[in-house]
Amino acid sequence: MTDDADRDAPPPESLAATAEAAVRAAGAYLADRFRDGDTVGAFETDDVKAAADEAAERLAFDRIHADFPNHSLHGEESGRAGEGPVEWIVDPLDGTNNYAIDYPSIASAVAARVDGEAVAAAIHEPLVDDCYVAVRDGGARLNGEPLPPAPRDRPLERSTVSLVVGLPAVRDESLSAEVASVRSALRGRCKRVLETWSPCVDWGLLARGSIAGVVCAYPDVFEQEAGELLASEAGVVSASADGYYVGALDEATRTELAEALPVAVGDGDEK
């Protein structure tokens, strides 16, 4: 590609194909390391760092730049590099805590943003080899097949919901206390509240209709960009405000989950 062509925004379908290739490259490496037992991580106060994070990120970056060498990159491990209308948001290893203790719930996520808006994304769960791909206004696919929205056939009190807590809320005492109240309120409304520490796995569960909703408290951008687009294109209804996001399979569930939050999330905030 020429520099001029590369600086223009390619079609979302083209970006989605590259996103899928990037997460598959990272995921294949992570799966091999996991199955070989090579998952050692450095445990910090509120996080875990593993060499696999950086290696998987490099593989994803290499795959993206093979197609679009002048696009900018924003990786969870290495930060931002480059400028231009197209930015790639990369979480090479979502669920590093799980990975480091050999708990098989991990994913890789890549989202392409054009002028600040996510237009294509892919999430790969390498240990089960499930790959979700979403294109804005183009729908969502799981392993190449269209992913229609799954109707929820049970009330919320008999359903499972995921709670995703971002590092800002983990590291701030007042926000952590706030999220504790949200957690308690959700438990009063649902049969089970999941906290898997691998948000992208939960986004996939929501997109395929296995869980009734996802509530995110001060989420990290690296999972959120890909997850929100996947959910939206799978037919999930959502709203967000002041550090919180709520996504659910239907309006009634979304409204009920929003009532557990300390901020008002109304129809005007719908996505």
Results as ranks from 00 to 15, higher is better:
246 V>T: 02
58 R>G: 08
240 S>H: 09
3 D>N: 09
267 D>L: 11
250 D>I: 11
2 T>D: 09
113 R>K: 14
174 S>W: 03
250 D>K: 06
163 L>E: 08
271 K>M: 06
207 A>Y: 12
243 G>H: 01
217 A>D: 04
183 R>H: 13
153 D>Y: 01
92 P>T: 05
139 G>N: 07
134 A>D: 02
43 F>R: 15
153 D>G: 03
43 F>H: 14
38 D>V: 06
4 D>A: 15
107 A>G: 14
168 P>K: 03
156 L>H: 13
145 E>G: 05
77 E>Q: 12
135 V>C: 09
211 I>V: 14
130 D>F: 02
260 A>I: 15
28 A>K: 12
17 A>W: 01
22 A>T: 05
112 A>N: 02
144 G>Q: 04
146 P>G: 03
108 S>L: 02
265 V>F: 05
49 K>V: 15
230 L>S: 04
174 S>E: 12
71 H>F: 02
197 W>T: 00
64 I>N: 11
183 R>P: 03
116 G>W: 08
237 V>C: 15
153 D>I: 00
217 A>T: 00
78 S>F: 15
198 S>L: 06
261 L>G: 01
57 E>Y: 02
80 R>A: 15
237 V>H: 07
125 E>T: 10
115 D>C: 00
75 G>A: 11
259 E>T: 15
73 L>Q: 01
211 I>G: 13
249 L>Q: 13
24 R>W: 00
240 S>W: 06
185 A>L: 03
3 D>K: 13
137 D>Y: 04
146 P>R: 07
250 D>V: 13
146 P>F: 09
184 S>A: 15
140 A>K: 10
269 D>T: 14
167 L>Y: 13
200 C>L: 04
260 A>R: 12
43 F>V: 14
169 A>N: 04
151 P>N: 12
226 A>C: 10
191 K>D: 12
9 A>W: 11
